[in-house]
Nucleic acid binder design. Structure first.
Length: 859
RNA sequence: GCGGAAGUGGCGGAAUUGGUAGACGCGCUAGCCUCAGGAGUUAGUGGUUAACAGCCAUGAGGGUUCAAGUCCCUCCUUCCGCACCA
């Protein structure tokens, strides 16, 4: 207040570019964000998904990390001991591809990228404990990947399997599903085929039941993520049933010579199918196998060999995804062989078809065209008989001849011998019981979830710690020999298989069991392995003797809040849960689930499109920090939208946030510089000390404390918390300070409002708050202070506004003192002139009073 | 097809257990201050209207209720995930 000379005006400007580095330096010096190995008080573990260090953060990262940082800072102020670490998902394909393209080895490029991203994070004022930083590409980290792999191997959770993968014949490499675009290789555009390769797999299906059941515990997770995991795990209850293959004697009944084309030595005896509709088995008029089914070669009749083999070959060469897409036409081929329906004892043909999946169930299905739409269409196309065996509980009886579509619902069993009359549900139970007693089948559970193939024919990943010995077979690397280091200086071409296979000094080794010549596994691990347990490594990032300290794990786990993108809803977050359960069974953690509360943040858009290089609408954090400051970037990220929703990045919106901070700054300055002020400085004045206008502002301040606290804690609605603080500033600016100059009570109120505002804003815009806190002359730092508490007395209004409705429509408002009895409020409402205009003198039929809110007069 | 989320001003978004629809911000309009301004500041801003009077407004249509953005029913649209799982 008063005259301001040029020098002071200069000093009074809000210059984020000056104050932000200053405070970042101070926090670092004070090691303000360090977390103890074992917390003394109540702990709070706030975690954000670590990034792949591509070299630059994008706004999606910024949003994620700002949300996490807000929570970390808030809980620190609430007195919790906070763990808030950050690290790098630094292995992976992009670094390898960049190395191929630019010739810069990933060992060189990765640290450069990390250091730039780290700089960007620091410039945003993110409060990480950098002493706990981990980087997955370092032997210090990945040796524990290898250790876990060995532990899982010991427990029978690691095995080698033959798997069909996407294969580009031109690049001679395995492709991930997302690298196959419309059936063609993403790089060279040649047609992708499938190939059987050996790979290492982790037996996640051993935990399927628990992963499914424990979803019920995840009450702090978004429902959609839980639902996606439930679908992904996909538990399906049904039956396996054996269909005998018709032998030569049965073939005497058919038109072909008995046993034609079947070599008796190879004669298969039975085909096992999986079905969830055992109640329809009497309607099974054919059996279909996946083209890759192992029995196929022995089933083919000689006279059909050409056609069938051509079909199998064509399927093998078609991209898996395209072949099994829902809009792909169903096609199949008759093998010439027949099976016996175990219930009707009838001969039914055996077909192969593109839509039957080799790796689900048994790779074979019984087809019931009357009661399954796919089977129906297939039967119509190839002229296979249709038999109705389920009748709807009510309405017309179905007839196979007139059926226009399959009847897929449950009903009542018909034409099913002794099972006639049973409902579908009862029928399924009866069939299961029958099969179990008589043999030839059993109730079975099938899962959509498959085991996790972790082999990658890549260089930039964790070497799989296994050794192939001619004499001993597969031998795990002994624990004492870990880590198996990734060799440097490997020439990367991107066109071959497993780069490590071409490094003899790596691949050639001695067998740990017999000492004879052997060679190492040259594949590397999927990087999802790295990210499945990193949350625990933060607890003991430098431990050379064990993966992490059990005491620290017991103290800190589970993670209380985990923030990240919803694109990881199934893969990462499922593996994360899987590894936690494995680690529990190994005995290194005590919790069954890694994360209590999951926050999935929405996507950042700009101009209606997702921010991306190809759209050219990327805004870089550096640009925003340089132009407006980190605090503005943080505030806007939190204000534009609630965390879970998508947000639109808008330049004018950013300016609005900057404007607000400028106004906070200038408002605070009016009360600055009272160093060494009297006791009770910045403390809430009592209501009785203030005139009515002051009481209003005081109430508003306390209400804002309550609103912001509850928004952060209960709702994670940071946008409304910001709105509440904007309201407070508006109210504070509107207050008649000018007239109150020299009034001690008013000045006290002003300093209290400023102090409160700085505390409430501190987790949002920490630099501004600490700087202004210092200029105000308050002790310590805002970011290191206790979160303010609201006074229940002061948030209670003494005058209430009561809305008056007539027949439900808003007509008037009156003011009443708090605590006015219901009858008096009603009387006042009925007496209100504006309301009376609408009651037109009629007697009210009913008067409804909602305490402290409204009166509705019904006439 | 199955599963999930969501439809509110010109825009982003607010609205405890049903109880003043549109908080807060952006944009826009006008005034002030400026040589000027993409700066600052004051006021206004859902539609209709001469109107601070009324009336109409939360994707559409019904219903329950004194009272519905909120609850129930029937549709429509958008986004996301899975996708021939037998």
């Amino acid at each position: 207040m008063g005259e301001v000379n040029t020098h002071d005006r200069e000093k009074a400007q809000y210059r984020p570019q000056e104050i932000e580095p200053k405070w970042q330096g101070r926090w670092e010096e004070a090691r303000a964000h360090r977390a103890p190995d074992v917390p003394a008080g109540q702990k709070m573990y706030v975690l954000e998904m670590y990034p792949y260090p591509s070299g630059n953060l994008h706004m999606g990262h910024v949003r994620c990390y700002v949300i996490g940082d807000l929570l970390a800072r808030y809980w620190r102020m609430r007195g919790k001991v906070v763990m808030h670490p950050m690290g790098w998902d630094s292995f992976g394909l992009p670094a390898e591809n960049a190395a191929i393209k630019e010739g810069i080895p990933p060992q060189i490029r990765t640290p450069q990228n990390i250091s730039n991203v780290k700089r960007q994070m620091k410039a945003l004022g993110l409060s990480y404990d950098w002493d706990r930083e981990v980087a997955t590409h370092t032997p210090k980290y990945y040796r524990w990947n290898q250790w876990l792999f060995l532990k899982m191997h010991e427990r029978g959770l690691v095995y080698r399997r033959l798997s069909n993968v996407n294969w580009c014949p031109s690049c001679a490499t395995v492709l991930a599903n997302e690298q196959v675009i419309d059936g063609a290789c993403w790089r060279c555009e040649s047609t992708v085929t499938t190939k059987s390769v050996h790979e290492w797999a982790l037996k996640i299906t051993a935990y399927a039941e628990e992963l499914l059941a424990d979803l019920d515990r995840l009450t702090g997770w978004p429902e959609r993520v839980v639902q996606m995991q439930r679908n992904w795990i996909g538990k399906s209850l049904g039956c396996e049933m054996d269909f005998l293959v018709a032998g030569p004697e049965e073939c005497a009944e058919c038109s072909r010579p008995a046993g034609a084309g079947l070599k008796s030595t190879e004669e298969p005896s039975r085909i096992r199918v999986f079905t969830t509709r055992a109640d329809t088995v009497f309607g099974a008029t054919y059996v279909v196998l996946a083209p890759e089914h192992p029995l196929v070669p022995s089933l083919i009749r000689e006279d059909r060999r050409g056609e069938v083999e051509a079909f199998v070959e064509r399927m093998r060469r078609t991209d898996k995804i395209a072949r099994t897409a829902v809009d792909t036409e169903k096609e199949g081929v008759f093998t010439g062989a027949y099976a016996i329906n175990p219930f009707t004892r009838k001969r039914i043909p055996i077909w192969l078809a593109n839509f039957v999946l080799a790796d689900y169930g048994t790779g074979a299905v019984m087809s019931v065209p009357a009661h399954d739409q796919r089977d129906f269409e297939f039967a119509k196309k190839y002229g296979i008989p249709i038999k109705v065996v389920i009748q709807p509980p009510a309405g017309d009886r179905l007839d196979a001849g007139t059926l226009a579509a399959a009847f897929v619902e449950d009903g009542v069993m018909a034409d099913s011998a002794e099972f006639n009359g049973l409902t579908s549900g009862k029928g399924r139970e009866a069939m299961a019981a029958y099969l179990e007693k008589r043999g030839g089948g059993r109730p079975t559970v099938n899962w959509h979830l498959r085991d996790w193939g972790v082999s990658r024919q890549r260089y930039w990943g964790t070497p799989i710690p296994m050794i192939h010995c001619e004499k001993c077979g597969i031998v795990p690397v002994p624990e004492r020999d870990l880590p198996v280091r990734l060799p440097e200086g490997v020439r990367l071409t991107g066109t071959g298989e497993a780069p490590l296979a071409r490094v003899p000094e790596f691949a050639n080794t001695a067998c740990p069991a017999c000492g004879g010549p052997a060679h190492r596994e040259t594949e590397t691990m999927d990087t999802f392995v790295d990210s499945s347990w990193y949350f625990a490594r933060y607890l003991s990032p430098d431990d050379e003797t064990r993966i992490f300290d059990r005491a620290a794990a017991d103290a800190w786990l589970p993670v209380d809040v985990y923030v990240g993108g919803p694109e990881h809803a199934v893969l990462h977050l499922l593996y994360f849960r899987f590894f936690t359960k494995v680690m529990r069974d190994i005995g290194i953690v005590g919790v069954p689930e890694p994360v209590t509360r999951l926050v999935t943040q929405g996507i950042v858009y700009k101009d209606g499109f997702k921010m991306s290089k190809s759209k050219g609408n990327v805004v870089s954090p550096d640009e925003i920090v340089a132009g407006y400051g980190a605090d503005t970037a943080r505030l806007f990220s939190l204000f534009a939208s609630p965390p879970e929703k998508d947000m639109e990045w808008s330049e004018t919106g950013v300016e609005g946030s900057a404007r607000f901070l400028g106004r906070v700054w200038h408002f605070a300055l009016r009360f600055a510089g009272e160093r060494g002020a009297a006791d009770g400085d910045g403390v809430s004045p009592g209501l009785e000390e203030l005139p009515p206008a002051g009481q209003g502002l005081l109430r508003k301040t306390h209400k804002t404390i309550r609103k912001v606290t509850l928004d952060i804690e209960k709702e994670t609605q940071f946008n409304t918390a910001v709105a509440a603080m904007m309201e407070l500033l508006n109210a504070a600016n509107d207050f008649g300070w000018k007239g109150a100059e020299g009034d001690a009570a008013a000045r006290r109120l002003g300093r209290f409002v400023v102090r409160t505002m700085l505390l409430l804003l501190s987790p949002f815009v920490p630099h501004l708050c600490d700087e202004m806190w210092e200029r105000m002359g308050f002790a310590g730092a805002a970011s290191a202070s206790a979160w303010p508490a609201w006074d229940e007395e002061a948030v209670r209004d003494d005058v209430l506004t009561i809305v008056i409705q007539v027949n439900g429509k808003l007509r008037s408002q009156i003011q009443v003192a708090a605590g006015t009895p219901e009858d008096d409020v009603k009387k006042a409402a009925l007496a209100d002139e504006r309301a009376r205009k609408f009651t037109a003198g009629a007697d009210p039929k009913k008067v409804i009073y909602v305490a402290g809110k409204l009166v509705n007069i019904v006439v």
